[in-house]
Design a protein around this nucleic acid. Structure first.
Length: 685
RNA sequence: GGAAAGGUAGCUCAGCUGGUUAGAGCACGGCACUCAUAAUGCCGGGGUCGAGGGUUCGAUUCCCUCCCUUUCCA
């Protein structure tokens, strides 16, 4: 029977780019969702941009734009990155949306009516210059315990003690660099303690999260669940609290509600019943995939809020560990803070999806991306083993008429492959992808052994054995088809290509039950390319290009709404934004004539240009495909940077860059050209 | 400071409730093969299972202590 399942992954926060830590979570979620759909279940996957809070407000101020403009731009970038990694959200919304506002207010009013909201006065640091109250992380000073300088207002990195900003010695606001004063302000609290029994029952009897997570959460119950401050004072980018002018909902209150806001929007788009999924007696399932850093919010506050407002609780919260790079946590100063974009500019998404799948399990342990291992694993498992099965059999099938034989020489072996679909499915369902991949690759080894044992290339020398050759390769192709089906949730693009090759669909998990007989197939085309270790090594930014900024220290490797703000204030733009004539002279700008322009296979953004610089020709990849037809460019003159460091890309080496005008938002770009009379190679000064 | 997770071959990881010579993939060495994107198959070398105690006939697996790594603390 088809289950109704609603799935979310954590909301990306609108003050920074996505990095591979975000990606491993959405890949984990996406694989699970695709798998459930192959099982025939009705599985919906929603996400949203997390937009509110002080960090967004500060960042927008620093850029001189409105928070709305900032979150619109960030959401567009985040969506593009998710799409690049083939994340199949049914809907991607925003917490700064009418749906979210309505639900947040409704939940709050429900909680208030039921007596779960209280208020009292709080003494808090106030920055008189900036005119705002300061979150703990925006106050720095000396640790009251050990005296270490430059510590945040909530805890000391040196001695590990926790305290409040008021305890700091010589406190200072990181926003204005002035000494804060202390002011009283009325705050609203969610009485989490009201839900102690409900939560205990949900966590320990309902089996809501993994056992390690429950063990970790146990400590909260021993000290007692205290009230949660859900309000912030103006100025604050967020939703104003009904009946409380100048008070806003804390970002963490409306962020998880963003799951519901996004789902609500999806319901309206598709005509689904929101209530059927969210009512207290709902039979639908609801799962949240999150990192272990935000387990607290999702396993305590969130179910309590839902319950208190008369809604259903999550069926489960799936917690995963952090991503490390080559054994160490991601670090900007080491250049291992790899953004999603940096990866996508160089490499295709599926190898990383496969690699992550090979390491993900249901535990909360950290997952290491070892670049060397990544190359070895992908090249060996995907190209050497998996794809090789199809590749080595396909030629014989083509020469034998392009159609599979009417029976299998070894039906027993096929049956063993197909029989494992239950086991593999169990692994996927329990999020033990690593075991699934191990099992699948074990089968790939057996498939290669089969071909090796029966040696179709030797049989092919005897024309009388043509039927046997075809049969052996039919067996091989069928085994490949089973493996590809098992891997379809991980590598949807490859499954699609393989589907065209085999003229089938991989949408149904159980279709491998029946082998392909008397079935025509298309000529084989490579399904995957090897990873070039040199390109993979480029994922790490050269250390010199990324000086460590002390203010970044508080950042988390993986997170959604910020427990910590990123860099404090950005220096004013006019302070040191000027260059001297010597700096400008370092740029070798030249006029180039476009000799040739063509599309780049495998990229929907790039054009490959051949430019005449008078004395030499240059090959340049330029991201202007959306704006220009290749044919219209040939013969045109452009301006290029001739001494830009050559950049190796997946498609070749780019020896420069052509200059374009473009706005902050929108895809339009406009090539620069000289007035008539300029010649190729002329210097631009 | 309190708490949680982890420390197994060069690398990345499996090892369920304690039990015969501790496993896989990659890397490395040798052989075979040539259909396949120098792909594949066979054979092999390599580990005092973080350290030290304890329980037991027997512990990588249970208990204690310590060391190291990572994370969380409204």
């Amino acid at each position: 029977m088809a289950r109704k399942i609603l799935v979310t992954s954590a909301l990306p926060y609108a003050n920074g780019a996505l990095h591979l830590g975000h990606i491993i979570e959405t890949v984990q979620t996406d694989i699970w969702v695709r798998f459930q759909r192959m099982q025939g279940h009705d599985c919906l996957y929603v996400c949203a941009e997390d937009t509110h809070g002080t960090p967004v407000m500060i960042k927008a101020q620093a850029e001189g734009i409105t928070p709305e403009a900032l979150i619109t731009r960030m959401a567009a970038e985040h969506r593009a990155d998710y799409e690049g990694f083939l994340i199949g959200h049914d809907h991607f919304h925003s917490t700064h949306s009418p749906e979210n506002k309505a639900i947040t207010e409704a939940l709050y009013l429900e909680l208030k009516a039921a007596g779960h909201i209280t208020s009292r006065s709080v003494r808090q640091a106030y920055d008189e210059t900036a005119g705002m109250f300061l979150p703990d992380r925006y106050v720095k000073g000396e640790c009251p315990r050990c005296g270490t300088a430059d510590q945040y207002g909530d805890s000391c990195e040196n001695c590990g003690s926790t305290y409040s900003p008021a305890d700091l010695k010589n406190p200072i606001s990181t926003i204005s660099q002035t000494t804060p004063v202390w002011r009283e302000s009325e705050h609203y609290f969610f009485k989490l303690g009201d839900f102690t029994d409900v939560l205990r029952k949900w966590l320990y009897e309902g089996g809501a999260s993994q056992i390690e997570v429950r063990a970790k959460l146990a400590e909260w119950f021993t000290t007692g669940l205290s009230d949660w401050d859900i309000s912030r004072d103006a100025p604050y980018f967020g939703f104003e609290i009904p009946g409380a002018p100048g008070k806003y909902f804390y970002v963490w209150f409306d962020a998880p509600i963003g799951y519901l806001g996004s789902f609500k929007a999806l319901c309206e788009k598709r005509g689904l019943s929101y209530d059927e999924y969210l009512n207290a007696d709902s039979k639908a399932e609801m799962y949240h995939f999150i990192g272990k850093d935000i387990s607290y919010f999702h396993n305590l506050f969130w179910p309590a809020v839902l319950h208190g407002a008369g809604l259903r609780k999550p069926t489960s919260v799936f917690v995963h560990g952090f991503l490390t790079i080559d054994g160490a946590k991601m670090s900007k100063s080491r250049g291992t803070f790899i953004t999603a974009r940096r990866y996508l500019e160089r490499l295709p998404p599926e190898p990383l999806r496969f690699y992550f799948a090979g390491k993900l399990n249901a535990g909360v342990g950290d997952i290491d991306l070892s670049l060397e291992d990544f190359v070895a694993r992908v090249n060996s498992d995907i190209v050497g083993k998996l794809v090789n099965i199809a590749s080595r059999c396909a030629g014989f099938v083509q020469r034998g008429g392009g159609k599979l034989s009417a029976e299998l020489p070894d039906p027993q072996l096929y049956a063993e492959f197909a029989a494992l679909r239950g086991t593999i499915a169990e692994f996927y369902d329990t999020r033990d992808y690593a075991s699934a991949i191990r099992g699948i690759m074990g089968l790939a080894d057996r498939a290669n052994q089969y071909v090796d044992t029966h040696k179709p290339w030797a049989l092919a020398k005897d024309p009388a054995k043509a039927a046997l050759v075809l049969a052996v390769c039919t067996q091989g192709i069928n085994l490949f088809r089973v493996l590809m089906s098992y891997l379809a949730p991980v590598m949807p693009q490859m499954a699609e290509k393989a589907g065209k090759f085999l003229r089938i669909s991989f949408a149904d998990w159980n279709s491998v039950d029946t082998p392909l007989f008397d079935h025509p197939i298309e000529p084989y085309e490579p399904l995957a390319v090897r990873l070039d270790p040199k390109v993979v090594a480029e994922l790490i930014e050269p250390a010199a290009a990324a000086p460590a900024k002390p203010a970044e220290k508080g950042k988390k490797p993986v997170t959604t709404p910020p427990a910590a703000p990123p860099a404090a204030a950005v220096p004013p733009a006019n302070q040191s934004g000027l260059v001297n004539i010597g700096d400008f002279a370092k740029l070798d700008l030249r006029i180039g004539k476009v000799l040739d322009a063509k599309l780049v296979e495998g990229s929907d953004k790039l054009l490959q240009l051949t430019l005449d610089l008078g004395t030499e020709q240059r090959n340049v990849f330029s991201g202007i495909r959306a704006a220009y037809e290749p044919a219209t460019l040939i013969g045109r003159q452009v301006v290029m940077i001739a001494n830009l460091e050559p950049r190796k890309m997946r498609f070749g080496v780019s020896q420069g860059m052509v200059l374009c005008a473009s706005g902050d938002d929108g895809p339009e770009v406009f090539l620069l050209s000289p007035d008539s009379g300029a010649l190729p190679g002329m210097k631009v000064t």
